[in-house]
Write a protein that binds this DNA or RNA. Structure first.
Lengths: 257, 257
DNA sequence: TACGCAATGATCGATTATGATCGATTCAAT
DNA sequence: ATTGAATCGATCATAATCGATCATTGCGTA
């Protein structure tokens, strides 16, 4: 058996079970412990799993690496809706920032028919999606590439964003609340998001309703940073008006406000 | 059996199985290992499969954001050779520039097992190839993304390169001659190449022999810019020494100098 | 027939994967 | 905390595979 297919087989087994032990793999493939350990070490450096004493467990990154698609599936319908709404705000000749993350990635599906768009992004999947469309100019924000996020971050990236200015920024967050503002579980990601928002005339937050009035651990901006909150279903009327009091429009479905 | 139908048969077998080994093909077709290996190498350069130690796996198996259409490529065998040679110059802990282009892209295959490498590149396929390896740090040079080249160019890109310094630069060119230096058919590409070379301690030009002593229309650097010329087959002794007179080593195969 | 060209096979040194050993480390039970 | 068993990684030896090279074969054509 080719080494490569053994590793692939290991990943398949891991996909079906939560974890796996060196012992069972040793027996399964009829090779020595040492070989299995080496396989696991390799797979770990490639980010496919995390080694534990006696075996290995799934890695967080596996979802996104193995199938970016699979993760898109959860809440997929909602995200589609959000992105459709968001895309209606994009006009020809716009210059827009697109943040990274699965929701924002979906947005790139919906802008392929616009003309003379300039997209500034740090998300590799977004670039990959738009690269073949000659009607769209892409500016990629360089910097340190983080594998499991498929995007670039760091000081350089932040500085570069500051050099650009866009008409609109489409950003994501892991939580948003009136009292505590926008929050994220990842600081470096949040810094990029904030920078994009600061350098755009109008800021759109794409956010499924499960994240509204929730807080993640890193609070990176007041809610006043955004101008429009796009979500997939109606928020209570009272809440809507409280956002409106902060000069933030909430958009759900096709009705504006 | 004719070579062509054997290759076709190999692809059929691969289609039914996840992977295939040189051994089983050797037995299946009653030919030597060497022939099978040559078939597999050819099929790889045409993009039909990916060679692994002991055999090959399906090419769709690799998830890649950006891929070149290798099918149209010529001189695949030679480029592989050049890249293997080039990779032997890369050491652990190196900081390296990798230029864009199909030849340089192949180089990324051969550096995945190095440790603590930092790769600075403007080539999206290179990023996509290395992104899953946590032992390799990637810095992407941002800028205007050009779709058909799958890389970023422009003033921003050039300026960013100037902010970095690398131990080694691996670059390409469309022509190189002692009298007229390095030349390219694309100015923006050449400017990136030159910038990388200027910011590295040692410059390696990867160049199949068909480009040696040829000139393309845009001359962008004197031959003194490079330190090592890596090509796939021997240049005439007289020519070699003329390059050596310019302090440039010519490397073909494993023999240095 | 002689020649050239491409495909193939054989060989060899180099590289890579694997297996075995062993002291160090980790885990779990007391 | 202590102890014993399991597991680990480092190392070395071995086996398998690799690519480079050269010799051979097969085949069409001058």
């Amino acid at each position: 058996m080719v080494q490569e297919s053994r590793k692939k087989e290991i990943l398949k087994i891991l996909d079906e079970h939560e974890s796996l032990s060196v012992q069972e793999l040793e027996y399964r493939f009829k090779v020595s412990q040492m070989t299995i350990r080496r396989d696991l070490t390799d797979l770990e450096t490639q980010g496919y799993l995390i080694r534990k004493y006696g075996g290995a467990v799934k890695s967080e990154a596996v979802d996104s690496l193995f199938s970016f698609n699979k993760r898109l599936e959860e809440n997929g319908r909602q995200k589609e809706k959000i992105c459709r709404i968001a895309s209606s705000f994009i006009e020809d000749d716009d210059v827009i920032f697109i943040d990274c993350g699965t929701t924002l990635f979906r947005l790139s599906h919906y802008i392929q028919n616009k003309t003379r768009l300039r997209v500034i992004t740090n998300s590799l999947p977004v670039v990959s999606e738009l690269i073949n469309y000659s009607n769209i100019n892409i500016t990629f924000i360089g910097g340190d590439v983080v594998g499991d996020r498929k995007a670039s971050y760091g000081d350089t990236a932040e500085r570069l964003i500051g050099e650009y200015h866009a008409d609109k920024a489409f950003i994501g967050a892991d939580g948003v609340s009136l009292s505590k503002g926008l929050s994220s579980y990842d600081e470096k990601e949040a810094r990029i998001t904030r920078k994009m928002a600061e350098n755009a005339d109008k800021v759109f937050l794409l956010c499924d309703s499960s994240k509204i009035e929730k807080n993640s651990f890193y609070r990176f901006a007041p809610v006043s940073l955004i101008n429009v909150l796009i979500t997939e279903r109606k928020i209570s009327g009272e809440e809507t008006s409280r956002y409106r009091d902060n000069d933030i429009s909430i958009i759900t479905n096709t009705e504006e406000e």
